[in-house]
């Protein structure tokens, strides 16, 4: 935590605000929570351990339980993959499971957005959904993951359009794919899906690099940004 606090980007932009880190099937929740706490937020983590994200009622119940403990969310940070099904392999090896894999992750994000809306309706707030930057360019052997990720990104945009007048911002953050690679069994760490040379010469990290941007989007200063896709891959792809 100390190293996170020393970073210049970690001004207490979320002081007095409550952030939920709602992560399904991925392992970055603790790092993100560290970074958001360093930005001054009260932080609660919701993961597969506390909610399976398999139903809307399940996610809403998890959000309600957290709200009783730390209050309603001002910022919800979410990411979802279905790790059990989404390991790297050919599409034809997945069979129909490929569709179910993508669908599981997409539904988890739908439920998380709905649960977040339930807490923010009438109050406003910020939602940021995370995904691997590789979805912007596609990835061999990861068709279900890329399908789900791009679907999540489009869902974010629809949410931004529908909820903007309610004071709810919804944004997408495309994180460097390597941060997700550890979650994807069988993925080739040297494969082209992980991008070209990183322009910054180092990969952005959850707590030190990405959390400050999440904090900005959740702060009052970030309230005019919605429906955006923010690429935090250290300059791998530079799309569009």
């Amino acid at each position: 935590m100390a190293s996170v606090n020393t970073l210049p980007g970690m001004a207490p932009t979320l002081a007095g605000k409550t952030a939920y880190v709602a992560i399904c099937g991925l392992g970055m929740a603790a790092d993100l929570a560290d970074g958001l706490e360093a930005a001054g937020a009260r932080v609660a983590i919701i993961t597969d351990d506390t909610s399976c994200f398999a139903s809307r009622s399940g996610v809403e119940a998890a959000f309600a339980a957290v709200a009783e403990r730390v209050g309603p969310a001002d910022l919800v940070v979410h990411a979802a993959a279905s790790r059990a099904l989404c390991g790297a392999q050919k599409l034809t090896s997945f069979g129909e499971a490929g569709f179910r894999c993508a669908d599981t992750a997409l539904r988890a994000t739908l439920y998380a957005l709905q649960a977040a809306h339930g807490q923010m309706a009438g109050r406003g707030g910020a939602i940021v959904v995370l995904g691997p930057a590789m979805s912007l360019v596609g990835a061999s052997n990861l068709v279900p993951l890329v399908t789900a990720t791009e679907g999540q990104r489009a869902l974010v945009k629809s949410g931004a359009r529908q909820w903007g007048r309610c004071g709810i911002t919804v944004n997408w953050l495309a994180a460097v794919s390597e941060l997700f690679a550890a979650e994807l069994a069988g993925m080739d760490p040297g494969g082209p899906e992980l991008g070209e040379a990183c322009a910054l010469g180092r990969r952005p990290q959850w707590a030190m690099d990405i959390a400050p941007v999440l904090a900005f989007l959740g702060s009052d200063a970030g309230r005019s940004i919605t429906g955006a896709s923010i690429n935090m891959d250290g300059g791998e792809w530079m799309t569009p």
Partner: peptide, 24 residues
């Protein structure tokens, strides 16, 4: 990400990813 039908937008967004990944 049209406002009218988020399900349609999400699924069509997913299709765009499907194309890019499958092409590779």
């Amino acid at each position: 990400g049209a406002a009218m039908n988020p399900v349609y937008s999400a699924l069509k967004g997913g299709n765009l990813g499907f194309i890019k990944a499958l092409a590779r």
